[in-house]
Every structure is written in C-alpha cells, then in structure tokens.
C-alpha cells in the first residue's frame, strides 16, 4: 500500500530543510577547520611570571609562518614585556622579517581576588579587550591560563559570532597543573578549539583534551 501523498511530501520537505541547514553548516565547519595559507597572525596572551616563560617556550619552535605575533599582557605585569622583547630580539636574528606588537589590558583577576569581584573585573576587561581583538583580528589565539586570557577569548568568540573574524583558539594548560585545571582552563575547556594538557592525569579527567607529553 502506497503512503498517502501529503505524508510523503511532508517527509520530503523536512529532508530538504535538513539538507538546506546541514550543507551550509558543514561548509562553515570545513572552512573553520580547513587549511589556512601562511602567514597566520597569532595573538598570544602572556601572563605574569611562569605563564610568560611557558608561552615563550611554546613559541620557540614555531616557524616564520606564524607572523605577526601580537602579545597581550596584564598591565600589572612587571616582567613579561622584557621577556617578550628579548625573545623577539633573538627571533629576529633567525627570521629577518619577524614582526610583533605589544598591548596591555587591565588584569581580570589578581591571584588572591574573590570570585564575585573577579566577575566584575572580568566584565571590565572584556569591554577593554573587545576593541583590541577587533583591531588585531587574529587567525589564531594561543593562551595558557593567566586570568587575562578569558576576556580575550570571549572577545574573539564574539567577533566570530558577529561574523567579523573566526579565530582558532588553542589553550595550553600550564605545566604546573598536574591534577586539576586552572579557573581559566575550566572555562576555556568548553570554548577552545584545541585544549592541550601536559600531564596524563588531566587527559584522563578531560577526554576532549590533547596530551602531547611535556611541551614546555
């Protein structure tokens, strides 16, 4: 017995609608993950002390295809700028057309700050980092957990939602996180494209994460 005609056309309509929805989505996803032509502009969120040391180690083996490198760090940070400048100076000796920029933003969270006041200062940091992220329009964001990276990544996600620029967010959890994620890590686990951890215990707890061994 043949199915009644209205039902058939109803099914066909739904199928057609699904196709219309899925094709652009798949296309978008392909574009998002697809090949990119070098050079790629890289936004690097540096943090105080250890975070900056770690992120410069991560950058140390990147080829000249990752250029320019835009560094953002908290305005309360004393040591990062000198470390970055000396790193870039050495890099310039190796790659002649090496380019980088430095920008400061208000720190979103001090080490001993309470959670409620952290929310307020983070909102303030987003207001501040959005125009900066808009100006830089990075292809790739690399961060490793200072409080500053949350407002920067949220700004980048907003740029993506608005269709202005979709950046790939790569988060590398600090080597000092052996068993638990940092607060930034707990948030960005859900919003990053690639989430890298450096100890096996974290890989077990967070299945979406990538473990490449100790990389700093």
């Amino acid at each position: 017995m043949e199915p009644p005609l209205p039902l058939l056309s109803g099914t066909a309509a739904i199928l057609l609608l699904l196709l219309l929805l899925l094709v652009p989505l798949a296309f978008l996803a392909r574009r998002r993950r697809g090949r990119r032509a070098p050079p790629l502009s890289l936004l690097v969120v540096a943090g105080s002390g250890g975070h900056t040391t770690e992120i410069l180690r991560l950058l140390s083996c990147l080829s000249e295809s990752y250029s320019p490198r835009h560094y953002i760090f908290a305005d309360s940070d004393k040591m990062s700028e000198a470390k970055i400048r000396s790193f870039e100076q050495k890099r310039a000796e190796k790659f002649s057309n090496s380019q980088f920029t430095l920008d400061r933003i208000p720190r979103s969270r001090e080490v001993r700050q309470s959670w409620t006041s952290s929310v307020v200062t983070t909102l303030y940091s987003i207001l501040y980092s959005f125009p900066l992220t808009y100006k830089l329009k990075p292809d790739l964001i690399l961060c490793n957990g200072p409080g500053t990276c949350v407002p920067v990544c949220i700004s980048a996600l907003l740029l993506g939602l608005l269709g202005i620029k979709r950046a790939v967010i790569v988060y590398v959890e600090s080597i000092c996180r052996v068993e638990t994620l940092s607060l930034s890590g707990k948030i960005l686990y859900y919003f990053s494209d690639y989430f890298i951890v450096q100890w096996p215990a974290l890989k077990e707890k967070y299945p979406k994460s990538v473990y490449l061994g100790r990389i700093v």
């Binding site: 697809g34 090949r35 990119r36 990147l62 080597i175 690639y194 890298i196 100790r214 990389i215």
Partner: peptide, 17 residues
C-alpha cells in the same frame, strides 16, 4: 627538557601547514 617542537608539529597539522 620539555619538547616544544611537538607543539609546533601539532599546530602546523591543525592549521593545515
């Protein structure tokens, strides 16, 4: 020592370099 070269390889792969 840590192996940042592994990170560079991973990144090259995911961006298609």
């Amino acid at each position: 020592p840590g192996q940042p070269e592994k990170f560079a390889l991973f990144l090259d792969k995911v961006v298609g370099f």
